Amino acid sequence: MPVTLLVADDHAFTLDGMQRALSRIDGVQVVATAHNGIEAIVLARAHRPDIAVLDIAMPGANGLEVVVELRRWSPGTRCVIVTGTPAPGVLRQLQELGVCGLFVKSADPQEICAGIARIVAGETVIAPEIAMRIAEETAADGLSERELEVLQMIARGLTNSGIAEALSISPKTVESHRASLMRKLRVHSVAQLLIRAVRDGLVSV
């Protein structure tokens, strides 16, 4: 008996391509396609697919919301996310919800299909790029309140002396916080630190 799949993406070209590619996996049958999150939930309730392959950014309900709803309406459905660039924290939320696959849209289609074939066989597959991003988000959560203050002031262009004066600490302590920030966020320059901080919403600019 084939493993049944639902595929959801709001871009028709992407949806068609994914349907065709996934249909070629041995033992797989694509039973429904959805163009938005609400349609994905409705079709999942109707078909109870074994696996739902979902985009994150969809109108009506995003991928995260669809996963939550499928836990309620089709608990036997295993969820796979194929995404572009999700907002900070979303990937880890999806992992905590127990999705069985996380892939990036920019990956080679053959790699995505090979990963989904492994999921069909019962595995959980997290693409290396996404595993790294989740690790980075986890590291960012480990920042202290003082480190976040220092990071915000670095983003405003203050020097070590200026930060030290503003926070009533020594420049040496500021340098220690700066080094700790770079270590925790796995960057090697102030430029990389600021790019990472803005990307992950750690500073307001």
Results as ranks from 00 to 15, higher is better:
residue 118 R to V: 02
residue 71 R to D: 01
residue 52 A to G: 03
residue 178 R to H: 08
residue 26 D to Y: 00
residue 141 D to K: 14
residue 182 M to V: 01
residue 182 M to Q: 13
residue 178 R to W: 03
residue 153 M to S: 11
residue 114 A to R: 13
residue 156 R to D: 10
residue 160 N to V: 01
residue 172 K to D: 00
residue 152 Q to N: 14
residue 186 R to H: 10
residue 148 L to K: 15
residue 124 T to W: 04
residue 53 V to C: 08
residue 121 A to V: 02
residue 182 M to Y: 01
residue 165 E to S: 09
residue 76 G to A: 13
residue 157 G to M: 10
residue 54 L to N: 06
residue 83 T to I: 13
residue 110 Q to T: 07
residue 179 A to K: 13
residue 205 V to Q: 13
residue 62 N to F: 05
residue 199 R to H: 12
residue 35 H to F: 03
residue 126 I to P: 00
residue 61 A to S: 10
residue 33 T to D: 03
residue 44 A to W: 01
residue 147 E to D: 15
residue 137 E to P: 01
residue 87 A to L: 12
residue 71 R to P: 03
residue 114 A to E: 08
residue 71 R to E: 05
residue 19 Q to G: 11
residue 39 E to P: 02
residue 24 R to N: 08
residue 37 G to S: 04
residue 130 I to R: 12
residue 162 G to H: 10
residue 82 V to R: 15
residue 80 V to R: 10
residue 182 M to F: 01
residue 162 G to Q: 15
residue 119 I to T: 01
residue 178 R to Y: 02
residue 38 I to A: 08
residue 42 V to M: 06
residue 1 M to Q: 15
residue 202 L to E: 02
residue 10 D to R: 14
residue 179 A to I: 00
residue 205 V to A: 12
residue 149 E to F: 00
residue 53 V to L: 05
residue 44 A to L: 00
residue 175 E to W: 03
residue 16 D to I: 05
residue 161 S to V: 08
residue 69 E to M: 12
residue 63 G to Y: 11
residue 196 R to L: 06
residue 80 V to H: 04
residue 151 L to F: 08
residue 72 R to I: 04
residue 74 S to L: 06
residue 38 I to T: 07
residue 90 V to C: 00
residue 158 L to H: 13
residue 22 L to V: 01
residue 45 R to A: 10
residue 58 M to R: 11
residue 64 L to V: 08
residue 98 G to T: 06
residue 157 G to P: 03
residue 145 E to K: 15
